[in-house]
Design a protein around this nucleic acid. Structure first.
Lengths: 243, 243
DNA sequence: CGATATTTGTACGTATGTATT
DNA sequence: TAATACATACGTACAAATATC
């Protein structure tokens, strides 16, 4: 069975949800706008009210709209959106509307990776370390392409979380996977052979720190590693803040 | 309209969901068990199949069960559960089945609070600081009861996240609020006047660090603060390590 | 292996309740 | 109060996947 992992047979309401959600994300439907009433959406999309209701329910669940009983359905302000929802994050990534979140995501990524590295240094099993070692050695292989390198990078960080043996951290990683991949892809455009060498050295140092059970060092190296990647992406007036 | 914030008119499927979920959480329905088929659940709960389907949909959404088309619905292993889901975390808290997650939660809480403190020290506005100051001064007030103190504690941490100005961190906090409250309640049992004085001093130091824009110090004090609270709760064997 | 029964999946139409305007 | 629009639940029909004989 050669099936892509995302092989959901598409349901009608997912389609409706996505079409409306995109319009909200890209500000075609700005906050405050009222959605058409159920009946009208039914005719517009050619589906039953059940389907429309399901779609609106999801829109409300991710905070894109506020459904007011008897009054109508209205697009929410940005701060009501569920920024941790995978669907939203993924859609923001693919529609190029994720910009306003980049800095926030970088914070989270830094926090997340640094903690995973520290915990891994405390709790990694020999098997965990072996898996990471395999990945780093493949990074070191000169025949590894730029695209493959990117995957190895993601796998290394996944392996780190695995080695942290924290189930909630693993759940968080799942939740953020989509966006982090988008951010790393953005970074890929600037990837070159020289950066790969530096990056591989960093990974090696992190791995060594883990093997030697030195959480502080793992943490510090990871911080440097992540911050290096941050510079090319961040938009916040870094360092010197508000007046 | 004086209504409590959580005033959802209870829907039938929520009730069904909860009853089944509790049985899964407390191992009355262990992993691998098959749920009765829809029709049987309909008669058992006295509701239509629509309601049963909604309930099962939620059970599947939080990873408690795996619905196999044409075959049946089966209880999942623990590692498939969505440990970040608010409903699950809340139910685990109130049914006393959260034990197996305590250590993981402590990791997350530490990561979370430390990062929030550091970010707050970088980005807090005068208004943020003012709000925190108010809270600390109320903590210092000797007429504050133990129960009030607990609320202030929660509010302080909420204020810190607010002051971090990271929208995703705020979302994460929302997601973890329920469990963190449960954990803090557990800690409350050991709270006494002396601990409140120490704790208030810690909060004051964190606030000072923020005001002085010293992220490192805010981070360090918060780490000490959180780790102090950890000791009374953690179950993981590793007791002695570095910092 | 094939035919049939079982079980879940999706969507529809409808009825009634409830909040808002 | 009446009209409107959302909320919830029911029953039904048929499709699709699986299990069983």
């Amino acid at each position: 069975m050669t099936e892509s992992p995302s092989k959901h047979k598409r349901r009608l309401h997912e389609d409706v949800f996505e079409q409306i959600a995109v319009q909200i994300l890209d500000r075609t439907l700005p906050p405050g706008t009222a959605l058409p009433k159920d009946a009208e959406l039914c005719t517009r999309f050619g589906v039953s009210r059940t389907v429309i209701r399901e779609a609106i329910q999801v829109l409300a669940a991710v905070g894109l709209v506020d459904v007011r009983h008897g009054a109508g359905t209205y697009v929410n302000e940005t701060d009501r959106w569920d920024l941790l929802d995978q669907r939203l994050l993924y859609m923001m990534g693919s529609t190029g509307t994720v910009g306003f979140l980049i800095d926030d995501l970088l914070d989270i990524r830094r926090m997340f990776e640094v903690e995973a590295a520290a915990l891994a240094a405390k709790r990694a099993t020999p098997e965990d370390i072996q898996a990471l070692e395999t990945l780093v050695s493949r990074m070191r292989d000169p025949s590894t392409t730029s695209s493959e390198y990117l995957d190895l990078n993601l796998e290394f960080h996944a392996g780190l979380v695995q080695a942290s043996h924290n189930r909630i951290l693993q759940g968080l990683r799942e939740q953020l996977r989509g966006v982090l991949a988008v951010m790393m892809n953005a970074r890929q455009s600037q990837a070159n052979a020289e950066m790969q060498i530096v990056s591989t050295a960093m990974h090696q140092m992190i791995l060594d720190s883990i093997r030697e059970r030195r959480p502080d060092r793992a943490q510090a190296v990871m911080l440097a590693h992540v911050q290096g990647a941050e510079r090319s992406l961040q938009t916040r007036s870094s360092g010197h803040h508000d007046t």
